[in-house]
Amino acid sequence: MTSDNEQCPADTGVSRQAEEWFALLLDEGATANDRAEFRAWLQRSPEHVAAYSELERLWLGAAALPEVMPNPSLTRRKVLKSGGALVVLAAAGLGSAIYLRSAAADYRTGVGETARFTLPDGSIVELSTATAISLDFTTNQRRVVLREGEAFFIVAPDASRPFVVACKQLRSTALGTQFSVGMQENDIVVAVTEHTVRVSSPTEEQDVREGQSVIFANDRLSVPVMMDVDAQLSWRGGKLVFISTPFEDVVATLSRWRRGKMIVMDRTLSRRPVSIIVDVRRAGRILENLENGLPIRIASYSPWLTLIYPQ
């Protein structure tokens, strides 16, 4: 997105500028430069922060309105070029799509929740925050669809019925095992804690062994690599463990455990590696944990928008 003078004529006002930024940042094609310019726009005036915060509030509220149906032909870029009222309407439709997708699930958790369920075949599933799965179990197959979030599976043996987890284009077939499948922004991560999982994309296949993980990103499947199992799946014990993790990645992960948006306002800070343990069973104190454990300053303008600065 270009500067305010180029992109947002003066007579459109702060509200329209906020709407255009909101629509742009919803777009999966938003670039790092877009996000940097957005941070600069927020810093220019408290009015900018207040206007964007109100859109965040409307967006999160829209997710609870299942009667609002999205227009499948309306892309986010088209929304960006349209009027302000349409931006808010599109946000309601997109939020509704998320609601309907998880509402169709057989098992789900809300933001900040985890849960453990026994499936009809005796397998165990543990759901992380904001997670939804659907089941398709028949006499010859056991298929789980991960719709949102992350799930950990302890698979009951049944040689006659493969256990498969489908997540978008990816298929993970258990070979008598324990493993997790998680959606992280535009990526899918499969991590194995016991035995082996065969992970297949439309063009590739990898056998992922105990202690390894793979990432599916940009339509490519990575080579399996060794991982820190305790850190990657620490949410199962009610904590999130970050070891030398870029701060922007820490914030992105923690954002899944609380409502509202957290934005790192300093580029150097966003890239800084940090090590911290956060107790997600006390989701309401995530911001307090960050401020106590790191040299940062947090400004919460509403329950919906939090800005993070270096101290």
Rank of each mutant, 00 (worst) to 15 (best):
P224K: 02
V197D: 00
V208R: 03
D187Q: 13
V223T: 15
T245R: 10
P202E: 05
I133W: 04
T139H: 10
D249C: 04
A159P: 05
R220G: 08
E248W: 06
E248Y: 06
F247S: 07
R143M: 11
S128R: 10
T203M: 09
D207S: 13
G237L: 09
L175P: 02
T139G: 05
E248I: 09
I188Y: 00
M227H: 11
T138P: 00
N218E: 12
R209F: 11
T131R: 07
V189D: 06
A252K: 13
L240H: 08
L240R: 15
T173N: 09
T138V: 00
A252C: 10
T177Y: 00
V225T: 14
V214N: 11
Q178F: 03
F152R: 03
D249A: 13
S200G: 06
T245M: 12
V223Y: 12
A166F: 05
V225Q: 13
A252H: 12
A130H: 11
A191D: 08
S180T: 09
Q169D: 14
G182F: 00
V225F: 06
S255A: 13
E185S: 13
R236F: 01
L254H: 12
T131V: 07
M227G: 06
V214Y: 11
W257H: 12
D136E: 12
R143P: 00
T138Q: 07
Q141R: 14
V197A: 04
I243N: 14
I154E: 15
